[in-house]
């Protein structure tokens, strides 16, 4: 399988503070990869560094064969990668339709088709397209956030804790949606606090600790691994 996303020895942080000290991961076509690890391991920072939101001081990020290291987010979106932040991931005063339009901001053509395709994936929000996003419930907001990121049919989707602050029932349906999206051919890289859930869902996983790679492997075997369990799954 070919890698759609290759992160090599990335060193990144905020100003003087270095948070990632050389992290490497790869995501293959149509794969679901989870990043787990304790609080402060740099999981969210890694996603931000991949997406050009935190400056990469060393190392590289390749999307397909293209070098996107430190590229501006609007350019990265154009090259086929989308990102859903953990919180505040919809525009509350814009309508649902306008939220989705913003997801396709970098493209001039085909808005109507894109909207219909995404509404097809998320029938729950399709019936409320001219309502303000601020009126949606937590779960529906998360759906809209996913929908916005899918407007350009990305090759890779970065998700920062998609299950955070959702009810257990909502968590299941969000993961179900992410599964659907993945079966449509989009590779997914997700960060999760809820490690067990993430491991039972992903195909491969990386464990990050103190801004460095700690383990990597098949998600299933990691679930069974005693070491990972002791350290990160509270088993």
């Amino acid at each position: 399988m070919t890698a759609v996303l290759r992160v090599q020895d990335v060193v990144a942080g905020y100003g003087e503070v270095e948070i990632l000290h050389g992290v490497s991961i790869t995501v293959s076509e149509a794969e679901i990869v989870a990043i787990i690890g304790p609080n402060g391991a740099g999981k969210s920072t890694l996603l931000k560094a991949i997406f050009g939101l935190v400056s990469v001081q060393n190392g590289s990020v390749h999307l397909a064969e293209r070098d996107v290291t430190n590229m501006a987010p609007n350019k990265i979106v154009q090259s086929g990668m989308s990102y859903v932040p953990q919180t505040e991931n919809v525009f509350p005063s814009l309508t649902i339709n306008e939220n989705l339009e913003m997801g396709a901001y970098v493209r001039r053509d085909g808005l109507r088709d894109r909207l219909e395709r995404v509404y097809g994936l998320f029938p729950d929000i399709a019936s409320r397209r001219s309502e303000r996003a601020g009126r949606l419930s937590g779960g529906q907001r998360q759906m809209l956030a996913l929908a916005r990121a899918l407007m350009l049919d990305p090759k890779v989707l970065l998700l920062d804790e998609p299950s955070a602050s959702l009810s257990p029932k909502m968590v299941d349906s969000i993961f179900e949606k992410i599964g659907d999206i993945n079966r449509g051919g989009t590779a997914i890289l997700l960060v999760e606090q809820n490690a067990k859930e993430a491991l039972s869902f992903a195909s491969r996983a990386y464990v990050l600790a103190m801004g460095q790679n700690r383990f990597e492997g098949e998600a299933k075997s990691m679930l069974e691994s005693e070491e990972v369990g002791k350290l990160y799954l509270g088993a």
Partner: peptide, 23 residues
Amino acid sequence: TKLGKAMRAMSDNADLAQVSGIN
């Protein structure tokens, strides 16, 4: 207009506007 909607989006949440691909 698209520009106007992007302005409102940025006024709502500048970080998310950037993430969405708005320059």
